[in-house]
């Protein structure tokens, strides 16, 4: 696990910033791209990505693998994912612990899984298949969630820990998602961080969210909130310093404003 490089403090590559990134080559440690945004593109977005990948480390982050789905894995999708990863030299490929659809249809959302032994065996087998096909480790992220199944026998953290050991995969720890789910499902986010296997974690995500009083929605439309910075600071101490990425997907501000969040994460890591 220690062979995975520490890429620094990066931001998501978004179309609002394409022209400036190409023109000015700003000093950003690395970029993360949403894989699906580039799978169908041979035009300007793909051109930008290939130029960016020549200058910066790039990691790929997907939303459509449906690793926990009960539909068969989509090998055409996986083939295109692999081609893109090879072409741009992606440092790693990540997706989410979730499912996205049923019966050939999709919601384009990250849906929560029942957390029990049956699901664990199912997901672990699919992760192994995907890793063999992609010929690289799969990095899985803890999603934010808004419902749980009464039948759950494992916490999400325990599920991820067992999955990573069983399927020999890696983890992307979304610190904001831990916080969001901890409020929505009333658990202690610090307990969650304490139970994550540090040797499996290759990347952190940080993002803004929307607090609706009774629950929090993971909207990625603003700066990281103080409680999540505090949890991140704690995570740096408990898990360690890792490649950290700011996700900002709606109401996207200037490149400087997004990058300032990445620099704030770096400052916390240097002080930890």
């Amino acid at each position: 696990m220690s062979t995975v490089p520490h890429l620094g403090y990066g931001i998501g590559l978004r179309s609002a910033h394409f022209e400036r990134v190409l023109r000015e080559a700003p000093p950003i440690d690395f970029f993360e791209v949403l894989s699906e945004n580039f799978l169908d593109s041979g035009g300007w977005p793909r051109h930008v990505l290939e130029r960016v990948a020549e200058r910066y480390p790039v990691v790929m982050h997907g939303v459509s693998m449906s690793i926990g789905g009960s539909d068969p894995l989509d090998f055409d999708y996986l083939r295109r994912l692999k081609e893109l990863a090879d072409r741009i030299g992606a440092r790693w490929v990540s997706d989410h612990l979730c499912w996205t659809g049923f019966g050939g249809l999709t919601t384009h959302d990250l849906l929560p899984l029942p957390l029990d032994e049956e699901t664990l065996r199912h997901v672990a087998a699919r992760v192994r298949t995907v890793q063999d096909f992609l010929e690289r480790p799969l990095v899985l992220e803890n999603p934010s969630s808004y419902l749980r199944f009464d039948s759950d026998t494992l916490t999400e953290c325990a599920f991820l820990r067992e999955l990573a050991a069983d399927a020999d995969c890696l983890l992307l720890l979304d610190v904001n998602n831990v916080y969001v789910s901890s409020v929505n499902h009333r658990f202690d986010p610090y307990d969650y961080i304490a139970s994550i296997p540090p040797e499996r974690v290759v990347q952190y995500h940080l993002a803004g969210h929307s607090d609706h009083g009774t629950h929090i929605i993971d909207t990625h439309d603003g700066p990281v909130v103080d409680a999540v910075w505090e949890l991140y600071r704690h995570t740096l101490r408990v898990v360690g310093e890792r490649s950290t990425l700011i996700e900002w997907d709606a109401k996207i501000p200037s490149l400087e404003e997004v990058h300032a969040e990445a620099l704030a994460a770096r400052s916390l890591a240097e002080a930890a």
Binding site: G69, S70, W99, F102, G103, L111, T119, H122
Partner: peptide, 12 residues
């Protein structure tokens, strides 16, 4: 698992 997913998918 498939039955649970089918049910939740339909509800969503």
């Amino acid at each position: 698992l498939a039955e649970r997913q089918q049910r939740l998918f339909a509800a969503i």
